[in-house]
Design a protein around this nucleic acid. Structure first.
Lengths: 206, 206, 206, 206
DNA sequence: AATGAATGAGGCTTCATTCAT
DNA sequence: AATGAATGAAGCCTCATTCAT
């Protein structure tokens, strides 16, 4: 490796790292105050720079949200695909999907809050149409999975798959609202409890 | 009844009716666009009047959100109390609470969306402290109920009541996001399906 | 005329009048400071209101420039057409066009300055493409006129029509830079002198 | 010549050359986009460097405009003086002045555009007062020349010297707007045609 | 009850400029 | 000689709100 190459890699990497830091800060602020209520200045304050300085790194406030959301969604898609490619039965696939969801939530909590709270509003904007697209893809995945489980006899067939999908989807993501990494319960603990509830129900069996 | 009195009652009633209309409109717009992203002008447009004219009826944008939310919460509280006063066992109380929640959602959908999406942000404002208070009261009620059910042997004791409470609470309210009164499934249908899921689980029993 | 009709006419007219006043002010400031160097606040100051208040009347700074320029160009087009429809010979048509140009300059001096100084830059913007279009139409008119005059023997044929057209066009409009309505020389005086120069030349004939 | 001295001359010369290159680039951009609408970054982009790097060579954006304009004006003054010192009659002096003007325009087109479009605005700034001063000197020269021609009987005396001066001055400089060095007509061709128009007029003589 | 015009604060963004490297 | 990151002022525009009518 020539010093020159090392150097240019160094600055490119430094730049990428700074962007990532700023995006993490922005995501935190967007998540805690809401996208519309977050001023660029608040993000900059949180990052310890001036409002205008953010524009050296990002084109706009929108561009920040875009990068935060698409990074999160890309990772989530990859996680889901990896589960689906394992060839498990419906029950275990559902467990895998839910565990991956909570794991992703753990790593991208602020992005998930943003996704959960603002994607509907943002998707009105051409730039964020991909939010609707991925929502549709997830929905299809869930419905396919639930129907397969019902057909295989793993899941009760007296429930409406569409409704069940919504309940499950929402519960997972809305947990981003209160989940704090490093808290009493790990993401995997939560996933476990959630699976216990959803798979076996709250009621004791006699 | 003198004509005079009838008249003044008439105008007072007319005034109240207009307020209610405007609040319904405002709630709809707040719900669909988000509180911060909703301008007073958008509300006024939706109501067919000019922005400034809203100030004849309301003190401020905040006052509208306040009235929307407190009306909704008052009704919800009353509904919960009525269930709790029936002296039912834990399981049936839980069913009653959930059914009342979906019934309230049916009548106050936009208010619920507002509550679900914005109460955390609004509660930062002194004026909206009551949002936190009622949230705390609801939480207490849920925890008491869940613990009672566990103690009575009606609910599984291996689940974390705090976590279960959050899952249930969120799922109910987040349904406001997609529920449309008059759709394929009534609020009570949804409540039924949700209860089936939460009480008995998704898995078939062998 | 019903009072109602008079009233609505009144407010519509009042509104149009206010717009016209503000546009006149804006044109003056744009002309004296340059469009890019003119801040919205400068226009507002000149109008005696606050910067934001302009947006009650106009959508944007651009919209103001647009209205100023298109109003001016519409009137200029009409003036030119009226000359061309008189069926005069080339020499008299040229005189008519030039006299109308100075007359229009007299009534729209700031708009002409804006047109002269900024139309090239503004035309880069889709919204102002019509500036290029009208420039092309004027050019065609001038070339046709000059060629006709040369063919008829009224104008010298040893000059390049394209070049002459540019000289004449520019001289007329650039006069907007220094012409002041109500000064020592009227617009028609200036037109007369200019015609004397262009038609007969500066040199004495022997 | 010591190598050392040659070196330092070399770097000084290299430095001057780089400055000249950058100024030429800046002038081009100022001319095509307008001074106020030109950002330092645009100039730097056109020069292939970053915005901040320009500040190694120049103190400010203003300093660039200053150097562009004063260089042009110095050369123009020198050219005019050389004509005036030839002791020609009024007609030939006028011809000389105009030919020198077009020649200067040929070499300094972007500077002329800048001068023509922005000097009025720039002159508000103390730093650019010299623009007004030279304008005044040129005006005086023109008036003296025209009056001399009239007194000598070379020029028609029924025209207003002040007006004629403006017409001529403006037409020459405004040609910078459309003149492109290396086009169909050379600067001297254009000067010739212009002189033919201004001296003898457009009309055929009978 | 509502309009129309304005206010003034504040939001997003741009930009000339600086400076350590 | 130039880069990269930042500054801070200012620009355009939006918006909750006011008020005379």
């Amino acid at each position: 490796m020539s010093p020159r190459r090392r150097d240019s890699e160094g600055t490119a990497a430094a730049r990428a790292k700074r962007r990532a830091e700023l995006l993490a800060t922005a995501a935190e602020v967007f998540a805690s105050q809401g996208y519309a209520a977050t001023t660029v200045r608040k993000v900059a304050d949180a990052a310890g720079i001036l409002g205008g300085s953010l524009y050296y790194h990002f084109e706009s406030k929108e561009a920040m949200a875009d990068e935060i959301l698409s990074t999160f969604l890309d990772e989530l898609c990859a996680a889901y695909e990896s589960v689906l490619h394992r060839g498990l039965n419906a029950r275990d696939t559902l467990e895998g999907i839910i565990r991956e969801s909570f794991r992703t939530l753990d790593r991208h909590r602020p992005a998930v809050v943003l996704y959960q709270n603002e994607s509907r509003h943002l998707a009105a904007n051409e730039r964020f149409h991909y939010l609707d697209e991925s929502r549709r893809r997830f929905e299809e995945m869930w419905l396919t999975l639930l129907r397969r489980g019902m057909a295989e006899g793993a899941f009760r067939a007296d429930l409406d798959p569409d409704l069940i999908h919504r309940f499950i989807r929402d519960t997972v993501w809305v947990a981003a609202t209160w989940y704090r990494p490093g808290g009493r319960l790990s993401a995997d603990d939560i996933a476990g409890q959630y699976l216990a509830l959803v798979l076996d129900g709250l009621q004791t069996k006699q």
